[in-house]
């Protein structure tokens, strides 16, 4: 009966094009700032000397041990750090807005009073988050490849897309955690805290696990490690890690569908 398909998905995309320009500029700016410096920083003897003088624990924690290669440098500066930060913030805030934010402003009631089901609402709005994150990931890969020659990065084109898929999967996990907590509680604060918490925890676990052989098993619990542990930018796509990230996200979305269908919508 609905006149056009995916009305909530289309609205979410249409409502966010302004902010998408901002996020896209942020991703491009970060890459354009860091990558061209690789020839003078990453491979330079001065930098290697500096890294040697730093405590190895610190270098391991921030993942700068591979900084001498183009792939390692791009991973350390963007995919493992700034890009991770940007997309985590974007994904968590979109995931929060999808249900909890809309409920706290009181708009969710009116939307659900129309001819849409709660299942449809969760699925369409999460799909809009996926598409937006995927765009930022794709954009990052395209910018990396555009700078590949001039910045002497030497990255395999396919590997750039593998790294982007890992970044999107990793930050999508934060987004879907925010969605499911929003579906369970309807509280913006809880949703954001959970989404950001997963990212921080994953990063911290990975950094700790990097410290020694004894701590290595901790890697198994870090989404950050699922995404980047197999070094997708250097060695190519890691289907196991991606499967874990996207699979858990999908399960969380199903949980959100069930949760929202079972409760009162307030506010």
């Amino acid at each position: 009966m609905a006149s056009k398909p995916l009305p909530l998905f289309r609205r979410a995309i249409a409502d966010s094009w302004r902010s998408m320009i901002g996020w896209s500029l942020g991703v491009m700016a970060a890459l354009l700032l860091y990558l061209p410096l690789f020839p003078s920083i990453g491979g330079s003897p001065d930098m290697l000397e500096l890294l040697d003088s730093l405590p190895p624990e610190l270098v391991n924690a921030i993942g700068y041990d591979q900084i001498a290669t183009g792939a390692g440098y791009t991973q350390s500066t963007f995919y493992g750090l700034i890009g991770f930060l940007l997309l985590t913030i974007a994904g968590t805030s979109w995931g929060t807005a999808a249900i909890a934010g809309d409920e706290e402003t009181g708009s969710l009631e009116l939307t659900l009073a129309h001819g849409v089901s709660r299942t449809q609402l969760v699925l369409e709005r999460t799909a809009a988050v996926v598409v937006r994150l995927a765009w930022l990931g794709l954009l990052s890969a395209l910018v990396v490849l555009a700078l590949n020659d001039s910045a002497e990065l030497g990255i395999e084109p396919a590997h750039a897309f593998a790294a982007a898929a890992a970044l999107v999967g990793l930050t999508l996990l934060s987004a879907t955690v925010a969605v499911v907590v929003g579906a369970l509680t309807g509280r913006r604060l809880f949703a954001t805290a959970a989404g950001a918490g997963v990212a921080v925890l994953g990063y911290a676990l990975n950094a700790i696990a990097n410290q020694s052989e004894d701590l290595d098993p901790l890697h198994a619990w870090s989404p950050y490690h699922w995404a980047y542990g197999a070094r997708p930018l250097a060695d190519g796509v890691d289907w196991g890690g991606l499967g874990l990230l996207y699979g858990i996200s999908a399960a969380l979305v199903l949980l959100a569908v069930v949760a929202l269908n079972r409760r009162d919508v307030t506010g």
Partner: peptide, 9 residues
């Protein structure tokens, strides 16, 4: 227009 999309014609 959005609300028209999600309600009756």
């Amino acid at each position: 227009r959005h609300f028209a999309d999600i309600s009756g014609p």
